[in-house]
Each structure stands twice: as C-alpha cells, then as structure tokens.
Design a protein around this nucleic acid. Structure first.
Lengths: 239, 239
DNA sequence: CAGTGGTCTAGACCACCTT
DNA sequence: AGGTGGTCTAGACCACTGC
C-alpha cells in the first residue's frame, strides 16, 4: 500500500493527510472531494478506511456528506455562521437574528494581550473594528474585534462587511473558523461604550472574550463583546 | 434476525435498545456490558453493527470502553463530575477545584418557574439547597439548587453531601446527569447574598441558570449560581 | 441508468488484559 | 492461552441523485 504501515492507525493517517490537503486549500469550500472509492484507490487503502477518516472530519464540521451526491468541503453559510457560534438568546427562547452596524475601524499596533492571544510579533499591526449589534431591533451588543493584518491583508479596505464576518474570512482570506473559545464574565459597563446600548455607565453587562480558531489550529482573530443582559442570555449546552 | 428489519437502521435500533436497558437500570454504573460478540449473538446482528451502536453511546459519554477488558457503564467519578460541567476558571488558566459549604436546606412548594423548567405538578415539593463554593480558598459562588422530592426522595435527610452532587444523584437515586443547559447573564448582586461573597450589593456578578438533564432526557434538577467574576471566568469551547 | 454515500456482514489480524 | 476491544478489508445490498 502507498501509505506505509506506521505507528498510527491507517484511518488516522488518512484523516491527517486529507485534513492537511484541506488546510492547504487543495479543495475550496463547497467543492466536492473525490469519491470514497477514488480516494481509497489513490491512497491504497480500503473504502471503509477512507470512510472512517471522512466521517471523523464530518463530525468536526470540516466536511459535509450528501447521499447520492458526494462529500463536500463545509461552507460557512449566512445561517450556519450566524448561529453556530452566536449564543445570545431570549431567556429560554429561540435563536435571534442579529443585525449589525459598524461604528469604527482603525489600524494600530497589537497590545500585549492581543499578541499573546494571537501569537503576533511585537509591533505587529492589527485592525480594531467596533460594531454594534441589534437583537429584536434593540441595540444589544457592542463588540471590539481584532484582526491581524498579517492574516487579513488590507481587510479595512473592504467596502462592505457582511453580518457574519466568518463568511468574509473564508471567501476573501481563505480562513475557515472551526471553533471558538469564549471566556465570560460580568463587569460594569464602560462609560465610553455605555451610550451605544442605552445603558447607564456601570450597569452590569456580560462581557464575552472570544478567540476564533482557524482550521489549522491557530487563533486568528479575537474579540471582546459587551452584551446587555437584561433581556438576553448567553445559552450553551454542555454534553 | 430477532430485530425485525424496520424503518430505522439496525445499529440505531440496537442503540435505542441498549440505551433503554441502561436507562432502566439493567446495568449499573461501572458494571461491564456483555461483550460485543455476546450482544451480537443475542440480538441476531453482526458484531460490526453492535460496535457502531456502542461507539455512539461512548461518544455520548454513556459508556466507556477499555481495550482487552470490556465495555463499561460510564461512571461519575469525583474528578470527571467536578470538571466536565464546571466551567469556572482563572482567566486563560487551568481548572480550579471548588470546595463547598452548605448554607441551608429547606423544603417548599415549587415556584412556577421551577415547575415549568422541571415539568412538575402544581404544589409539588422541592428541596432548596443553598451552597457556597470556594475557588483558591476564596468564596466565589453562591448557588441555589432545586431538587424535586419526587425525583430525590428525602434527599434533605442525607447526612453528608458530596462536593459533586451528581455522584450522590447517581449512587443513591439512580439519576445519571448526561448534559446541562446553561443560561448566563450579568446582574447586580442581590443584597441577601452579597455578604457571602464579600461583595457590595449591586456589584456586577455572573449568574448561571442551569438545568441538568438525566439519561432519560428529563430535566431533573435546576440551579441558579451567582459567581464573583472579578477573578474568575466562565470558559467554554464551541466546536 | 450509473455513480454516490449509507448500511450490514463476515472474517482476518492486532493490541491489550487476565489467568 | 483465551477473551476483549481496535483496525482493516472485501463484498453485498440499499437509498438517493442526476442524466
């Protein structure tokens, strides 16, 4: 067989190989992969082994399979992107569609905290994007988003920013966000931002610090969001 | 075959059957299940089909498999129980071991909100347990836990409550918590509880409302926790 | 109809654990 | 040595898709 019998199980080697190809852009989002049989033949393993590797990638949302059609690179659609990582809800209630307004955007050097979180060099330039998000037409979230220019060249030259930034990252910069790490705390609303949410400075707000992880495992973007949590809650299921 | 060919895939039928047996207490936590071969023979399906069903149950933390030994009913150990659903951390940091002190315990009728959340009858009796939890030897969390007496008979007669309640639920009441739903918001610290955390009334605190789900899918316990989030954050990875 | 993924089987061999 | 789960294979049949 062309994949040498090594330390790891064959299906794991196939998984690693296919994931590497995916990371390197060998296939683009929404493109089909070769069929199981074709991959099995190319790699010199059985179809079942390829299947096991593919299914693992599906379980990580890297791929999607459609019976009778083929296996496709997972795509960040408007809906999936908005809802997969967006956890703010009405208490006990359904998903809410956030609307978004950009408040400001500027270039500056990365702070120490940002360098640590994103693995940046000293003095590396980032874009700081300030956005206001509405739920049920009420201003609910102010978020500050940090985008390294080394990852997103000239992103501040984009004329139109979509509601779901991850779609832009994927289509224009080849960045596929596969997971996020959130840290939540309660804090007093900073005076500088209080007006946006129509709150008194010092009101209790939910702060969500997020690091977004690319398919290659790097943290490529981080954000801080201040959420009015009178009417909304951050909802999460742990299994 | 003894499992009639029905609408659903065989492995799904096997999964349903084995899960039902598990729910009904057919096997107790930490007990071994019959071997794959034995189950396959009993059910009249192939070993591979049983394997697929078992692996799905493993992925839901219902079972554990140990190579060379057997397949076991998952057990809530002190560590796994404390850390699997306990999300409070130092910012960017490691897990913290919470210490616990019981403040009070009393019986009363369920409130409307509790009846809705836990599916209780009007006037049903519950135990309201108030606990104080410490992280790094500092009081960090006040939590109010609601336990229906219909689910946990005479739970308030327990002489000793363990740090991880889920272990008690499993050992004494046959309740296996498999998932939780958390809703987080920021709020002002209630005056009645502020002293416990050494905070001023009105300070911003993180409130975590939790419903705990039994293996049979019912919400069997709910809680409200007020967390001092000066020094600690609620940390979660979304994939 | 041919091509795809989805299910199911049977059997081989390996790695690990116990006796 | 014998039993367990873990991997891998090969082949059959089914369900869905599109030409």
């Amino acid at each position: 067989m062309s994949l040498a019998a090594g330390f790891q199980p064959l299906y794991k080697q196939v998984y690693d190989l296919l994931t590497r190809r995916l990371v390197e852009g060998h296939w683009k989002p929404s493109e089909p992969l070769p069929s199981e049989m074709a991959l099995a033949e190319e790699l010199g393993v059985s179809q079942g082994t390829v299947r096991k590797a593919l299914n693992q990638m599906v379980s990580e949302s890297l791929l999607e399979r459609r019976q009778g059609k083929g296996t496709y690179v997972a795509e960040h659609t408007q809906e999936s992107s908005l809802f997969r990582f967006f956890r703010l809800r009405e208490p006990g209630g359904e998903s809410l569609i956030p609307e978004t307004k950009v408040l400001s955007s500027k270039r500056r050097s990365a702070s120490k905290r940002e360098r640590l979180q994103l693995g940046l060099e000293p003095k590396e330039q980032v874009v700081e994007l300030l956005r206001l998000r509405y739920l049920n037409n009420k201003p609910a979230i102010v978020e500050k988003i940090i985008q390294p220019l080394s990852v997103f060249p000239d992103i501040d030259k984009q004329t139109e920013l979509p509601n779901a930034l991850y779609i832009l990252y994927q289509e224009k910069f080849g960045i596929s966000i596969v997971s996020v790490r959130d840290e939540l705390r309660a804090t007093a609303m900073p005076e500088a931002l209080a007006d946006y949410l129509g709150l008194a400075a010092g009101s209790p707000v939910l702060m969500v610090e997020r690091a977004s992880i690319n398919i290659d495992g790097r943290a490529v973007e981080c954000s801080q969001a201040y959420c009015a949590s009178e009417d909304f809650v951050y909802s999460v299921d742990l299994k």
